[in-house]
Design a protein around this nucleic acid. Structure first.
Lengths: 341, 341
DNA sequence: GATTAGCACTCAATAGGAGAGAGTGCTAAC
DNA sequence: GTTAGCACTCTCTCCTATTGAGTGCTAATC
């Protein structure tokens, strides 16, 4: 279904106006704001047509029109020109990053924060699990008699650690040796590839120090369990409160509660994303509490894993800005990852 | 100023009722709910007195009365019996903790979460800076050619780390040696006590590896900078939304924005706390955005440092429960810290 | 045939007013 | 000192009238 130019123009006017004001847009307003050379009556006729086609709707009989979700969908699919970060914004972002991050996740988190700031929407970042990263380094470090630290580093620079108990009698060189044996068996393996058999092998080789091994393995398993999960980081949740559609505390509460449950957001997104920025408008979202929100999201890849990041806002969203920012930012992320890791 | 028994009884009735319903309380309600043997008219006279004394106020001429902030203050100072955690709650908490924390801060954070859950208020935990903790252990760990990890452990089990760059030529034993030298100079010192002179000494002793030393020192300084700051952890912020006094989104937004700025909350609390649970009712708070909220907080000490934790809710708060829970929990924390660290 | 001006019509939003109800404060009796 | 009784006050809710933005239709115009 394609629309003639005039209808497109009118639809666009209404969308821009409505996005800005959150009020229904009348025929006169369309003519005035955009200096069209046709009369309000003509616009009314066109608007009536657009309503019949489902792109507009009327809150009540004699109000102006607001874009329907289908209208927004048509707009983003067929008409929208995305508005990337301008030079100044890019500069601010690059300055903000400025090497002050320790690992990929820090980087992405900062970018999420930035996105929320410049768009005034709520951003989310899903940092990938370390399932696919490689086991790079492990060490057992004596901290004090009876206590040691298991330190584990993956190839993406993620450092994990956990305290364990060890017999008082154990010496530092012994711990060191054990660490080395762990390394020999596990080094270079993907986290997912570590098998029970590997762990068993370790147990066998280090029989005489069974207790330490057991504790260390427990610690490692617990670290892996923890890090198997994707994490969601949300920034700018307060921005939702600025939108007039959420001046009702109950609605707000539902959304906030939804956001607090990390998994819910993850479940809403597809397993893996292509190279495009994806848009989910209102009803297109599965979750009941999300039918009044839109989601704009994209994947970024970092060495074989996929992370996701995106923005959420009201259906009445500046999609052009959201999509553009996200697109720009995605490129910047991948560029940095390529260079630094 | 002390009140006679009957006035106390009436004040208490009104407070309990108002805390529960958030509605002004009338004289008849007082008589009915608490089965008093005096008539409503008598209660009215007493209420009038209480209003003159400033303990009650009337939203408008012919509504019931609500406790004034002074009324609440009198109540918590002179009448309140705190309601500690009961056995079941304590058990739930202990079960929740169950050794599954790595360091003090994990522990306190979990407790904050628990507090928010059982009280339905918003909890905050201020974990102390590591300024006062002692430097326990440092190691330089080679990760890959050109990269190493600075690992720093304090006596409270806090593990910090940072990546640094090192010359490709450096060997693992060399790094190890350097780590040991760091340890020799720094071990056992309080973080605050580490002086420029110590760092200079290191620089001198390890002249030939100046670059590594510089990077490592930078990393350490940056770690210390970071950890010099106290952190605030907030749980159950959503609970505020349940209170009828905050059904207005604008108020809500102000409070949430306030909470997002960690330092603001810290600035509101006194530098150091005694052994009592402290209460700040409404106007007693400095911050403008907090004049409608009450704060109940206490300090906990862990090896010379003081952390703080507390609850915030509307002025119409169940102080007895908040104070009691906090008091119970504080004991539990200190008990665990004594045992485990 | 498309466009436009004109006008009646619709419906939310706002304001004003009446009535109900909760609760007080006062007075007079106990 | 306490209480019953009653007038009074003030909010809340419902109702109605009014306003105004914006439409939809019709008939005239380009």
């Amino acid at each position: 279904m394609t629309l003639d130019e005039r209808k497109k123009l009118i639809l666009e006017s209404i969308i821009k106006d409505y996005v800005e004001t959150a009020e229904p847009v009348g025929s006169r307003a369309v003519v005035k704001k955009h200096g069209l050379k046709i009369s309000a009556a003509t616009v009314r006729n066109e608007m009536s047509d657009l309503e019949d086609m489902g792109y507009l709707e009327q809150p009540y009989t004699s109000a102006g029109r607001i874009p329907s979700q289908k209208g927004f969908r048509y707009y983003v699919d067929c008409m929208m020109e995305q508005e990337n970060l301008d030079d100044k914004e890019t500069e601010v972002l690059l300055h903000l990053l400025d090497d002050s991050f320790q690992e990929v996740n820090d980087l992405v988190q900062k970018i999420g924060h930035f996105l929320a700031q410049i768009t005034n929407y709520t951003s989310f970042v899903i940092v990938p699990s370390v399932r696919l990263s490689k086991f790079k380094y492990l060490q057992l470090i004596p901290i004090e008699p009876g206590k040691a630290l298991v330190l584990l580093v993956t190839d993406l620079g993620v450092v994990m650690h956990r305290n364990i108990e060890v017999p008082h009698s154990i010496t530092a060189p012994e711990l060191d040796l054990m660490g080395r044996m762990f390394n020999q068996v596990l080094a270079g393996k993907k986290i997912t590839e570590i098998q029970r058999s590997d762990l068993q092998q370790l147990r066998d080789e280090l029989k005489q120090r069974r207790k330490v091994i057991d504790h260390a393995l427990e610690a490692i398993e617990s670290l892996l369990d923890n890090s198997n999960e994707e994490r969601v980081i949300i920034s700018g949740a307060l921005n939702i409160m600025n939108e007039p559609e959420f001046k009702d505390v109950d609605k707000l509460k539902k959304i906030m509660a939804f956001l607090e449950e990390e998994t819910q957001l993850m479940d809403m997104l597809p397993e893996s994303l292509g190279d495009e920025v994806d848009i989910r408008i209102g009803q297109e979202n599965q979750a009941e509490d999300f039918k009044e929100l839109s989601l704009v999201f994209a994947g970024y890849r970092s060495q074989g894993e996929q992370g996701k990041l995106g923005l959420m806002g009201p259906v009445r969203m500046e999609y052009w800005k959201a999509v553009g920012s996200l697109d720009s930012v995605r490129e910047i992320i991948e560029e940095i990852i390529r260079k630094r890791f």
